[in-house]
Design a protein around this nucleic acid. Structure first.
Lengths: 260, 260
DNA sequence: TCGGTAAATTGGTAAAACCAATGCCTCGTT
DNA sequence: AACGAGGCATTGGTTTTACCAATTTACCGA
């Protein structure tokens, strides 16, 4: 008769667990492509069938998705559980944007503080790259590029906090606000000097993390968000004036308050 | 870039489906032993690795269980709550609990602070009720009742923060940790005086919110969580001793650190 | 410059072989 | 005859190798 005795550890379980851990820690982000099976198997020092069994296990849990000839990709199952319900609600209830902004202020402040405490050399390297890319994007003034780099930079900060929940929540939140961030950058472009101030704030945040000054990092992150919010509010007043003028001319386009 | 193309049907999926169907239909009953892999593979006209991938998939869903040299058996209990991806993550990756606890400390601290700033009379009334119910539950020493009231109280605090995201996240998080909270209360019951200290902390939190003292509220909430964490860590050491003794007697059960 | 074809890449499947744990079965001992 | 120890067949676990099929990429010609 079948008895529940001590089991020999299956190597496929160990592999699956290891990959899961990488996903949780953020070194494998949703949308990322896993290395080819042959290469990954060699890296892990296991055979391809064993690796495949592990991948199948993750696939059955919905954490990865494989396409023959294409590759294996990490899905966003973990992030979607928290924030998907909010996506459509944000459109319906604009007052939620305040809550979201407030929440983001807390989340990114905490992420910055922890990042300053815990950032490794690898984290700093990633931050350095993201910051450099952000600088280039600002110089080129390409809106899509700028919003993508902006998100990537803030995401890098969140990952440097070394808290899986912060990392995933920040990723989900930033994705949720992606459209708004792009719109807001467009608005802020009209504000003289805003680009330089923004980049200075990014610089301050990056420096604080690099120099491991948690309080300064938190302050920098929150100052950044406060600035965006405040400047945007001012800018929107003039937008509202332009729109009310446009409306009188028959042009109808709805402007929703946006967030970066 | 990854595209959603039409997928070729994977043979391992077909096998898993077929076996699943047999189990659900009853032709493979719980406790039954599956034919040997080699034989079953030949019967189904597939290779053994493909069959193994299918079996691993079922095993990860908890429907079958394999023992090297013994065979593969249909599990007796079929249903499990595998719907929340974070839930099984928590079971599989203990270090994630640290992250969750850390995150909870931040979230509930902020919730308490904002609640102290913004609580309305209606909020205070709800808090009053929840606090009273918590006191009664502590007096009756009913574990389920206590964990339910504990959660309800913390939930009430989060809702008094008047931030929809905080409320939603706290609810999701508390639900995620519900089982742990119940277990932890059971552990803490063995610690002399813990119940009084806990209730005093709840009282301090409630008072700070009622008297609109944000900093005190945040401190009270975080002190509460720190206390639970610390006391629990101490308590778990004795649990570990008990379990290691049990293991020597052949009882095999994994002890996972729990959180309240 | 565009489009299509061929080659490289990559996941999917198969076969064979060996290892390790399990369990049955036989043989030897008492 | 009963019991126990050891051996052997069974069976899941892992690896290696090979080939197939879908996709992607790069190159070349129109």
């Amino acid at each position: 008769m079948p008895q529940a005795r001590l089991q020999v550890p299956r190597i496929s379980d160990a592999i699956a667990s290891s990959l899961e851990r990488r996903i949780l820690e953020g070194s494998l982000k949703p949308g990322d492509r896993l290395p080819p099976e042959r290469e990954l198997a060699a890296d892990l020092g296991v055979s391809r069938p064993s690796l495949r069994e592990a991948i199948q296990k993750l696939a059955s849990k919905g954490m990865v998705q494989s396409r023959q000839g294409g590759g294996t990709y990490v899905t966003d199952r973990l992030e979607s559980t928290f924030f998907d319900p909010w996506r459509d609600m944000l459109g319906a209830h604009p007052n939620l944007r305040e809550d979201l902004l407030e929440f983001r202020r807390m989340l990114e402040g905490q992420a910055a503080e922890w990042a300053a405490e815990r950032a490794t050399d690898a984290d700093l390297e990633r931050l350095e790259k993201a910051f450099a890319a952000l600088g280039r994007a600002f110089a080129e003034n390409d809106l899509d590029q700028r919003s993508a780099c902006d998100i990537a930079f803030h995401q890098a900060v969140s990952e440097a906090s070394h808290n899986a929940l912060i990392g995933h929540l920040a990723a989900a939140m930033l994705r949720l606000m992606q459209d708004n961030i792009r719109l807001n950058l467009g608005e802020l472009r009209a504000v003289p000097g805003a680009a330089d101030v923004l980049q200075n704030q990014h610089q301050a945040l990056f420096d604080a993390i690099r120099e491991h000054r948690p309080a300064a990092a938190r302050a920098a992150a929150q100052t950044h968000i406060d600035f965006v919010q405040e400047t945007l509010a001012q800018s929107l007043r003039s937008v509202a004036r332009r729109e009310s003028a446009a409306r009188r001319l028959g042009t109808d386009f709805s402007s929703t308050p946006t967030i970066d």
